[in-house]
Amino acid sequence: MKITIVAGARPNFMKIAPIIDAINFKKNEGIDIDFRLVHTGQHYDKNLSDTFFEELNIPYPDANLNIKSGTQAEQTAGIMIGFEKELNDNPCDLVLVVGDVTSTMACTIVAKKAGIKVAHVEAGIRSGDMNMPEEINRIVTDSLTDYFFTTSEYANENLKNLGVPKNKIYYVGNVMIDTLRKHENRLKQPKVWTSIGLKHKSYFVLTLHRPSNVDETESLKELITKIVTLSNNKPIVFPVHPRTKKMLSDLNLNFDNLHFIEPLGYLEFNFLVKNAFAVLTDSGGITEETTVMHVPCITLRENTERPETCDIGTNYLAGNNPKKLETGFKKLLSNEWPVGEIPKFWDGNTANRIVNHLLEI
Results as ranks from 00 to 15, higher is better:
309 T>L: 11
284 G>H: 09
303 N>Y: 09
293 M>C: 02
295 V>Y: 07
301 R>L: 03
286 I>R: 12
282 D>M: 04
286 I>P: 04
283 S>G: 12
312 I>Q: 15
287 T>K: 13
293 M>Y: 00
298 I>P: 02
297 C>N: 15
288 E>K: 11
276 A>W: 05
283 S>P: 00
285 G>S: 00
304 T>L: 05
287 T>E: 14
278 A>I: 08
282 D>H: 02
297 C>Y: 15
293 M>E: 07
278 A>L: 03
312 I>R: 12
291 T>P: 12
302 E>V: 00
308 E>S: 10
281 T>D: 02
291 T>N: 11
306 R>M: 06
285 G>M: 01
302 E>N: 13
300 L>M: 08
282 D>R: 02
302 E>H: 05
294 H>T: 12
298 I>Y: 11
312 I>A: 13
280 L>H: 05
284 G>A: 09
276 A>H: 05
289 E>K: 05
309 T>V: 15
292 V>Y: 12
281 T>P: 04
299 T>S: 08
304 T>P: 14
287 T>F: 03
307 P>W: 04
295 V>Q: 11
294 H>C: 08
293 M>N: 02
309 T>W: 11
276 A>V: 09
305 E>G: 10
279 V>R: 08
309 T>N: 14
297 C>L: 13
311 D>S: 14
304 T>Y: 11
300 L>E: 01
292 V>P: 11
313 G>E: 09
313 G>M: 14
298 I>R: 08
277 F>G: 13
286 I>D: 08
292 V>E: 05
303 N>P: 01
279 V>F: 10
284 G>R: 08
276 A>L: 01
280 L>R: 07
294 H>W: 03
278 A>C: 11
277 F>H: 13
306 R>I: 04
295 V>A: 08
286 I>G: 04
293 M>V: 02
305 E>V: 11
282 D>A: 04
287 T>W: 03
293 M>F: 06
290 T>Q: 10
306 R>G: 04
298 I>T: 07
306 R>P: 02
302 E>F: 00
304 T>F: 13
287 T>M: 15
301 R>K: 13
291 T>D: 06
297 C>P: 05
313 G>F: 15
291 T>G: 10
278 A>Q: 04
304 T>G: 13
301 R>A: 08
287 T>Q: 15
